[in-house]
């Protein structure tokens, strides 16, 4: 009975995994299929990946996505880590309120945030005489950083909470100057958290569609926006090819994150 039950549980989990992965695998499969009309039987071909290389629009969108994601990673990780350190190491009035303010960017639907940014940026742009400033890669970057900041602060904060303040105090009693404490104790201890946060920030930006969609002016796009436009207009397996690449990159990143940061603790653990 027990074994039968365990078998059933395994089967159930396998079915859930099939549900999660089947469409992605099918989508990826068609990227390697020769037929432009998604016809079967399957014939292996890299023609759609080759076609990507000649698709200027998609390539440009791809570059935009990568650059925005990189800039977002640097900015959000820096600012977020600074704020996390302040929260983790100081007690001050308004701290709880400030931490609560991190939830709206996560909890409010992106649709609302994205359109609100469009409205506000447009007003600001018009009041300085450049309404065109409301949209563009800079606006998209502004938005992505805002969405990434809470994640960075949470991830770095979690790492910081795992380590007692006493470590830094101990270093000070041993004669380390504040700078030495920072460099030789705080930084090495925070590093895995910061790296994980940076990878999260990259993923948040690289996959972000809604905000980019509202802040992208005609002719300037990121990869998800370009894919969305293509899906709406009618598409070829080229879209499958680029989607496959994106999924592979995202999942690869997530695997790296998992190496650095396990939910609820560090892999190598300090029990």
């Amino acid at each position: 009975m027990r074994r039968f039950l365990d078998g059933g549980i395994r089967l159930y989990l396998v079915l859930v995994l099939i549900f999660l992965y089947l469409p992605i695998l099918v989508m990826a499969l068609f990227a390697f299929n020769r037929s432009p009309l998604y016809g079967l039987p399957f014939e292996f071909d890299l023609v759609w990946f080759e076609a990507l290389a000649g698709n200027k629009r998609l390539l440009q969108a791809g570059w935009n996505s990568v650059w925005i994601a990189l800039a977002n990673t640097v900015i959000a990780t820096t600012l977020g880590t600074m704020a996390a350190v302040a929260f983790g190491r100081y007690t001050f009035r308004g701290k709880t309120l400030m931490q609560a303010l991190l939830f709206p960017p996560i909890a409010i639907p992106w649709l609302v945030i994205g359109t609100a940014m469009l409205v506000f940026f447009f007003w600001v742009g018009r009041s300085v005489g450049a309404p065109g400033m409301a949209r563009g890669l800079h606006a998209i970057l502004l938005g992505h950083v805002a969405l990434s900041l809470p994640y960075v602060i949470f991830v770095v904060g979690a790492r910081l909470n795992d380590y007692p303040k006493a470590l830094e105090e101990a270093a000070a009693t041993l004669g380390a100057t504040p700078w030495q404490v920072f460099r030789r104790v705080s930084v090495p201890i925070l590093a895995p958290g910061v790296v994980a946060a940076a990878l999260f920030a990259f993923a948040v930006s690289f996959d972000q569609f809604v905000i980019s969609y509202f802040l992208a002016p005609p002719g300037v796009t990121t990869l998800p926006v370009e894919i969305y436009t293509s899906i709406r207009k009618g598409f070829t397996p080229e879209i499958n090819a680029i989607s496959t690449i994106i999924i592979a990159v995202s999942m690869g990143l997530m695997l790296v994150v998992a190496r650095f940061y396990r939910f609820g603790g560090e892999r190598s653990g300090n029990e």
Partner: peptide, 14 residues
């Protein structure tokens, strides 16, 4: 964390 848009797109194949 993988692209939500792409995952939705993949269902059209199915």
């Amino acid at each position: 964390w993988s692209n939500a848009l792409v995952r939705i797109f993949s269902w059209t194949m199915v």
